[in-house]
Design a protein around this nucleic acid. Structure first.
Length: 443
RNA sequence: GCGAUCGUAGCUCAGUUGGUUAGAGCGCCGGUUUGUGGUACCGGAGGUCGGGGGUUCGAGACCCCUCGAUCGCCCCA
């Protein structure tokens, strides 16, 4: 028989396991916890949508739409697309489910997204994001609340130190258009000096020339007009309210007047939390206001703000994630003992303790594995224990061992877990005290 | 789509100007300890050298093609 070739994984996909999976999980768990503090409802969304959902909302000429979408025809001949982002699908759901009645609606979700891109550090073809949106709130307070949420998330992940919030405004539709026209005029005047990429951008997405990395573009980009001169009175006032709100909440930010967004639907507030620790992919969380999007999808005018954060990127920055571990290791000796071990383990699990049976290898090996797995205690079941009806219970931290029945094991475990939790609480309180002390210094 | 670097054991890597039977550390398994963990010592298993072709008496090494990974450009979380 010919040797079967093992199929390879699709380029840009990952099998996340072990420590990486635990970091990933930790990011999602933290997000789920914090979003509840801010009253965001969870939503589960389809992973694919009609292609029009994305084509119409992101802008036909953007790279995401023109060359990065996984689009295909299903058996009925409809053009479908694996979602390359959350916002468009969420907006579609808002319209097709009549969620106008819940306005203002605070939504959060997370999951896989797909873009046909060249993989590199912190960039994959199937990647994962956290997402938070407020639909139907046109006030600056919504922007502030969303940014506070983002800021607290990064703090609770312990990565706020290396990450800074960059903030800009793109103004309302008129401001943005007027600014854009002025920029195009400015760049056209210097067209010959621009890099080839930027001359191309001049047609497709002139705002992008502002943050070009090409050295020859810098003087032209740096001398380009700021949005500020083109902001309408309302737009200026709106941005002022956002920054005042952030200051009031103690969220640190920097103005970056060169910050723009790639997708067409953004208005007013635009922001990115960036780090220099992830190579070329410095943006860890980004978003802004997209007041025009819902209308573009055929709804009534409906203001909205949102952000998305790359889970892989956050997970790469997170440190000190506690691995999963069994509280109890059950070590049977012999076939009869294994049957007993199965019933003991299920009794322990029924009592809400995590338990794992180590049933293969020499006894000594099993002790080693129980220890490596991080178990708090082991339960030993052999011939003597089968005869007596009691098991050996050994605390791995102290080495103490005694013969107990199962009820006594469970009692002991409650104590053990309590002191473990107390220890964890202690370090939490310590961290909290340090936070409070830091706050005191900055006042 | 473009550019650069790199593919040798499960992992991290050595392997001289091309030369016999491809090595180390960690991990894994076993033993010292036949029912008691972290240390130590001893032993063992594990390799189509990414794949295909070529040059050569001889290729892990040189040449071509191909696949993959990494990093960057574009774009983006």
């Amino acid at each position: 028989m010919a040797k079967v070739q093992t199929p390879q994984p699709v380029r840009g996909t990952q099998d996340i396991f072990g420590e990486d999976q635990e970091r990933f999980r930790h990011v999602v768990d933290t997000f789920e916890r914090v979003r509840r503090l801010y009253g965001f409802k969870g939503v589960e969304m389809p992973v694919f949508e009609p292609t029009a959902v994305f084509a119409r909302s992101l802008g036909e000429t953007t790279d995401v739409v023109s060359k990065e979408m996984y689009s295909f025809e299903d058996r009925g001949g409809d053009s479908l697309t694996l979602r390359p982002e959350f916002t468009a699908g969420l907006s579609r759901a808002f319209l097709t489910n009549g969620w106008q009645q819940h306005v203002p609606l605070k939504l959060s979700t997370h999951g896989p997204l797909f873009r046909y891109e060249r993989p590199q550090k912190g960039r994959y073809r199937q990647f994962h994001q956290l997402d938070a949106e407020i639909i139907g709130a046109g006030e600056a307070s919504a922007d502030v609340e969303l940014l506070c949420f983002a800021d607290q998330l990064l703090r609770q992940l312990g990565i706020d130190d290396g990450v800074t919030l960059q903030l800009n405004t793109l103004g309302d539709a008129e401001s943005r258009d007027a600014w854009r026209d002025a920029l195009v005029e400015h760049f056209r005047a210097h067209e010959k000096e621009l890099s080839e990429d930027s001359r191309d951008r001049l047609e497709r997405n002139p705002l992008r020339i502002l943050d070009s990395k090409e050295r020859q573009d810098r003087p032209i980009a740096d001398s380009a007009p700021d949005i500020d001169a083109y902001l309408s009175g309302e737009a200026k006032e709106f941005f002022a309210q956002v920054t005042e709100g952030l200051d009031a909440c103690g969220v640190k930010w920097e103005r970056n007047s060169r910050l723009v967004r790639g997708l067409d639907y953004y208005r007013h507030t635009a922001f990115e939390f960036v780090t220099d620790r992830l190579g070329a992919q410095g943006t860890v969380l980004a978003g802004g206001r997209y007041d025009g999007l819902i209308e573009a999808l055929g709804g009534n005018a409906m203001p909205a703000v949102g952000w998305a954060a790359g889970i892989e990127r956050l997970a790469m920055l997170v440190e000190g994630v506690e691995p999963d571990r069994p509280e109890l290791a059950v070590l049977p000796m012999g076939d009869e003992a294994m049957t007993k071990a199965l019933s003991v383990a299920s009794e322990l699990r029924g009592a809400q303790f995590s338990a794992e049976i180590f049933g293969s290898g020499k006894f000594r090996k099993r002790m080693t594995r129980a220890n490596q797995a991080g178990a708090l205690a082991v339960v030993i079941i052999g011939e003597d224990e089968l005869a007596s009806g009691k098991v050996q219970f050994k605390n791995l931290a102290t080495g103490e061992q005694s013969a107990l029945d199962i009820a006594e094991v469970i009692e002991n475990m409650w104590d053990l877990r309590f002191s473990e939790d107390l220890g964890a609480l202690g370090s939490d309180i310590e961290a909290l005290e340090q936070d409070v002390a830091k706050l005191g210094e900055s006042e």
